[in-house]
Write a protein that binds this DNA or RNA. Structure first.
Length: 731
DNA sequence: GACCTGCTGCGGTCTG
């Protein structure tokens, strides 16, 4: 420890604490970050793998700065999760107690007495969520200057979880608004898992100013991968209803055999599948007369049930495997995990990478990934997708990109005008009204979160919000809340920037089990799977949004629905390379390899290398081999040109109507020479563009703009059109 | 269209 120069930069009281705690050495990331942060005068990103000591890398030097330069100073730590705030409070409190620095947790579960005590003497470390920060600015506008006057640092944890989302835009805006009140830029520290493009993260943290970057590698951990294929026989009865498929049962048996006795994570891609597998696996434990080792975990389960699963994973004396959704992708500490199972293609390479980051964290151990994929038995009725074996090719493409250390960059170019509506209302609450030009400067000016929105667009937004009675102007031109704006702001749901589905509570004997999406059809007497068990629905109360259930025996269809997600162009291109290739992919088992070979055969049989258009009777399939953002843009372009089109698995589907295929080919090729129309014309006929929380409050033009910025890749679509005349097409 | 995350102030009742 004494050999470390970084160690000697820390305050003596912190050095002494580390001695007492018997720290042997600073971690790499700490050595590198301490000299950059201790001066308290620049923005820094600290990127390292989970559990590499990032939090200390930020707090040890930031606290040193506080002790030596600004004893009444304040460090503001922002977390995406309440659970993380509670974790960090535990970790920081002991150190800070010896330093006589107060630590203040602040989120929805923290009592108001703690909050008012902080506001009386706002110094030390504040641990807060973006939503609570929003509430503070909104409701205590006059207290903001005082509360943050001694702010030394903003520390943003799990930065990667914010980049590209509504919450990320909101957080940028909140930090910018506080800087604006203080009339200075409070230095920012971003803590993150390793990211592909650090420059994107740096620009997100602060635009228009250099950001120092500390990045340490993943430590060269090895990865063992095996993907197993399962063939689902054709159903003879063709009965609709629950798919209690043989493959699902076979996968459950495989998981039971291989995962028993150790800690693992299993990721089917939906809550519905989590329920199905957790139920099957618990049943297998019961059959084998052993204690249950498989626990469900997803966002609809109650905190209590999720806790049981987390505790089971953490405790050392009995093995436990969680069957889960992305709830266990984020930073809560669940201890080391031996392997990760992915059932079906992952939502993205980035999420697969995040999931895998949970495995092989003990020294000398490899990370283990077990992939599972189900394909239907081929027959005369097999669909195009089924013949091509899309799922096995997609999971193979994702894993091969993962092995090359590539993953999707976050989408940082979204306009997020929904969140601008929120921020406008919040700023008006904070200042008790604001004139239009000041509001524009604050939110859309240079370095502001919504920079790039033109004054004309902003004016159009204000006019529309006025018409909708969300805003109004007083005699002096001051913007104020209109009656509807007042209602919006004065409800606690205002503070979150993101939307969520309305849900029913599921209750048994007075105990809450969790929640279910409200759009499900429910009838008394029905059996449902929930929390890995079967329940009988006793009654449903519509006004209380509550479902009362009692334990029951026997299977039933689970209640969650669907799959989705957007695929990146790079994944589609890798899929095509796999179709064009030959030979073995080393991480596929014999069945999965056979699926791939069958897909390759279909690819050749359909001559997909020699054409970009496949005639499918009532419609034509345009094969772009691009990602969904490009395909959707292309579908809009074609529809606007009079060829009604929709997204398809490998490209775009054009409805032929009265047109012959040759005419469609001609008209598509003619578009190569025409410029892409503006977004407003492109989406003129498009309906159902509202995706984000306040999208409903936007005028049509701005709704189209914000939708396109998040969902469409116009350049890629135009690039494909421009190249189409040089592609072979023996249709 | 998979998944995930978050939330105030006030008025009521009860306890020490």
């Amino acid at each position: 420890m004494t050999a470390s120069t970084a160690f000697h930069l820390l305050d003596e009281r912190i050095q002494r604490f580390l001695w007492v705690e018997q720290w042997e050495a600073l971690r790499d990331v700490q050595e590198l970050a301490i000299p950059l942060i201790v001066a308290g005068d620049q923005d820094v990103i600290v990127a390292a793998a989970t559990a590499a000591g990032k939090t200390e890398a930020a707090f040890l030097p930031a606290l040193t700065h506080l002790l030596q330069h600004n004893p009444a100073g304040l460090i503001v730590y922002v977390s995406p999760l309440k659970a993380l705030i509670n974790d960090q409070f535990g970790r920081l409190e002991r150190l800070c107690e010896t330093l006589e620095i107060p630590v203040w947790p602040w989120h929805g579960d923290v009592s108001s007495s703690v909050k008012s005590r902080f506001l009386k003497k706002p110094s030390g470390v504040l641990l807060i969520t973006p939503e609570s920060l929003e509430a503070m600015l909104c409701n205590r506008g006059t207290a903001v200057a005082g509360a943050f006057s001694n702010a030394v640092y903003f520390v943003v944890d799990e930065l990667h979880a914010f980049i590209g989302s509504e919450r990320g835009k909101q957080l940028q805006s909140l930090m910018h608004r506080i800087d604006s009140v203080l009339g200075r830029q409070v230095p920012r520290i971003g803590l993150s898992a390793t990211l592909g493009d650090m420059q994107l993260a740096a620009t997100f943290l602060r635009s228009g100013r250099p950001v120092a970057i500390v990045e340490t590698g993943s430590g060269g951990a090895t990865l063992k991968v095996l993907v197993k294929g399962f063939e689902e026989p054709a159903r003879l009865d063709k009965a609709p209803g629950p798919n209690d498929g043989l493959s699902t049962t076979a996968i459950a048996r495989d998981l039971f055999t291989n995962l028993r006795g150790s800690n693992n994570l299993v990721f089917p891609n939906s809550r519905r599948e989590v329920e199905r597998y957790a139920h099957l696996l618990s049943g297998l434990c019961e059959e084998a007369r052993i204690a249950n080792e498989f626990w469900p975990h997803h966002g609809s389960l109650s905190r209590e049930i999720r806790n049981d699963t987390e505790v089971a994973l953490k405790q050392k004396d009995r093995p436990a495997t969680a069957v889960c959704t992305s709830t266990l992708e984020l930073g809560i500490d669940i201890g080391a995990v031996k392997s990760v199972a992915q059932i079906g293609p992952p939502p993205s390479v980035a999420s697969l990478r995040q999931r895998l980051g949970r495995s092989g964290r003990r020294r000398g151990e490899s990370a283990i990934l077990r992939g599972f994929v189900i394909e239907d038995a081929l027959g005369s009725q097999s669909t195009f997708s089924s013949q091509l074996r899309l799922d096995v090719v997609e999971i193979a493409a994702s894993i091969s990109l993962l092995l090359e250390n590539w993953f999707e960059p976050p989408v940082t170019h979204g306009a997020h005008l929904s969140t601008l509506v929120q921020q406008l209302l919040s700023v008006i609450a904070q200042y008790g009204g604001m004139n239009a030009s000041s509001a524009y400067r604050l939110l859309c000016g240079s370095g502001a979160p919504f920079e790039g929105l033109s004054p004309a667009m902003f004016t159009e937004l204000l006019r529309h919000l006025g018409q909708e009675k969300i805003l109004q102007q007083d005699g002096s031109g001051l913007l104020l809340h209109g009656p509807r704006g007042d209602q919006l702001v004065n409800h606690y749901t205002f503070y979150a920037a993101f939307l969520n589905d309305e849900e029913f509570r599921v209750v048994t004997g007075g105990k809450a089990l969790g929640t279910l999406p409200v759009h499900q059809l429910l009838v008394a007497g029905q059996r449902i799977l929930f929390a890995g068990r079967t329940w009988l629905v006793e009654s449903v109360n519509d006004s209380d949004k509550t479902i009362f259930v009692t334990p029951s025996k026997g299977g039933a269809p689970p209640l969650f629905s669907g799959t989705g997600g957007r695929i990146h162009s790079r994944v589609r291109q890798r899929m095509r390379e796999l179709y064009r290739g030959s030979g073995l992919v080393r991480f596929l088992d014999p069945t999965a390899q056979r699926f791939l070979d069958e897909g390759r055969l279909a690819y050749q049989g359909l001559a997909l290398d020699e054409r970009w258009l496949v005639d499918q009777g009532p419609y034509c399939l345009l094969l772009t081999w691009l990602g969904d953002a490009a395909n959707e843009a292309l579908a809009c372009r074609l529809s606007a040109a009079g060829l009604p089109s929709a997204l398809a698995p490998l490209g775009v589907e054009v409805t032929k109507g009265d047109l012959r295929t040759e005419v469609i080919i001609e008209r598509v090729m003619a578009l190569a020479h025409e410029a892409m129309p503006g977004v407003d014309d492109l989406l003129a006929e498009a309906k159902n563009l509202q995706r984000q929380k306040w999208d409903w409050a936007l005028p049509p033009k701005l709704l189209r703009a914000t939708y396109a910025s998040l969902n469409l890749d116009l350049d890629e679509a135009q690039g494909w059109l421009a190249s189409v005349h040089s592609l072979p097409n023996d249709a």
